[in-house]
């Protein structure tokens, strides 16, 4: 991202329920789990993450989006790798 683009980033009204396309590989914070499956809540959208480590909550992971339902703003993805953790 260029210096100019850094100043222009975010000049828009962002949806509270972002949607993603199948094939996107995105970095998300794992925010909780549902049984054995890790979950990342992105705004008010939900991404279930298959194959994430047991202790993935509060870590930042790369996820490949496998399916996404734009009506319910929810989808599933596959864990790729852990790239960071919570700021605290």
């Amino acid at each position: 991202m260029s210096r100019f683009e850094k100043f222009l980033a975010g000049w828009s009204f962002r949806s509270s329920t972002p949607d993603y396309a199948v094939g996107d590989v995105i970095e998300v914070m794992v925010t909780g789990d549902e049984g054995d499956t890790a979950v990342a809540r992105i705004g008010d959208s939900t991404l279930r993450i298959e194959g994430a480590p047991d202790d993935a909550v509060n870590t930042r992971v790369l996820v490949a989006v496998d399916a996404w339902d734009e009506a319910s703003h929810a989808g599933t993805g596959t864990y790729r790798e852990t790239v960071g953790k919570s700021a605290f």
Binding site: D44, T46, R48, E50, D54, S72, A74, T78
Partner: peptide
Amino acid sequence: VEGPALPDGGSQTAADDFDDGSG
């Protein structure tokens, strides 16, 4: 990878999702 059995993100409360792990 499971099929597209998707949770209803819109109807869930934050607390449902935020069941912290054992960090």
